[in-house]
């Protein structure tokens, strides 16, 4: 079992207004690996995640998800394999109730009713939100929203999880819960965040993105101890390493 990899080669993307957000990005995530994606505002993290799931089509480069090359034809297959947790849970939770929202993906996968129900229960249990099933989505707290947003993706049984700022808007307790959850997952994970302490806790490896290019890629502690690199990329050493 080593097929849940994700390989990106020379990925490029420019927005219609000409902004070059990705200027040739290459990396490979191995099966089960947890990787942090850090970089200042506007570095290109969100853009990259959109490109990985075919939500925007890169102007150059290739994306290979476990042997499937992303193209217009395979985009459905790729989205089946990559679960994308969006930065703003309000965007991700668009259905009237938590149950409907978590069931949305599995229903689109064409599963039968009992299978869907099982998936929903499992996913909600996994994030500790099973009692929220009948709640309307807009009536949840920030932490609950985040948990449910993660469940909506888990319910599709993805091989790879990519998350854009999963910790934003959480209080310290919610953040701890999230870190516990992320550590426990066995998926291949790519986590974009400004919370370098979280990266330190969850991800053995870190990719630093700077102005659309990879500025560093390697062992998290090594990367975070390179003060000059962090300075150049407008990042700050996590408090967990300054001790």
């Amino acid at each position: 079992m080593s097929h849940h990899y994700l390989e990106v080669r020379d990925l490029r993307y420019a927005y219609p207004d000409g902004t070059e957000a990705l200027k040739g990005v290459s990396f490979r995530l191995e099966h089960g690996e947890a990787v942090g994606l850090v970089g200042a505002n506007g570095a290109g993290k969100s853009t990259m995640m959109l490109a990985l799931t075919g939500l925007i089509f890169a102007s150059g480069g290739t994306i290979d998800v476990g042997g499937t090359l992303l193209s217009k034809k395979t985009v459905g297959e790729v989205r089946r394999r990559i679960g994308f947790v969006f930065q703003d849970s309000e965007d991700q939770l668009f259905m009237p109730t938590v149950f409907d929202d978590v069931a949305f993906g599995p229903l689109n996968q064409g599963l039968s009713e009992p299978e869907v129900r099982e998936r929903v229960t499992d996913a909600l249990t996994r994030v500790g939100a099973e009692r929220l099933a009948d709640r309307p989505t807009y009536r949840l707290s920030g932490g609950e929203k985040r948990a449910v947003a993660i469940a909506t993706v888990l319910a599709m049984l993805p091989d790879v999880l990519i998350m854009d700022e999963p910790g934003s808007g959480l209080d310290p307790y919610g953040r701890r819960l999230l870190i516990g959850l992320l550590r426990d997952f066995r998926h291949t994970r790519l986590i974009a965040t400004h919370d370098l302490d979280m990266v330190l806790d969850v991800c053995p490896r870190t990719i630093v993105l700077h102005e659309g290019r990879i500025a560093a890629d390697g062992d998290t502690r090594t990367v975070f101890s390179d003060a000059a690199l962090l300075e150049r990329c407008r990042l700050e050493q996590p408090s967990g390493m300054r001790k």
């Binding site: 939500l55 994308f84 965007d91 409907d100 069931a103 993906g105 996968q109 599709m156």
Partner: peptide, 23 residues
């Protein structure tokens, strides 16, 4: 912008134009 982001979130979960619910 919100509509665009929601649409992306829907497509990421295999939305194909048809909303399905179990109720």
């Amino acid at each position: 912008d919100r509509a665009t982001r929601v649409h992306r979130a829907m497509k990421a979960r295999l939305f194909d134009g048809e909303i399905r619910v179990l109720r």
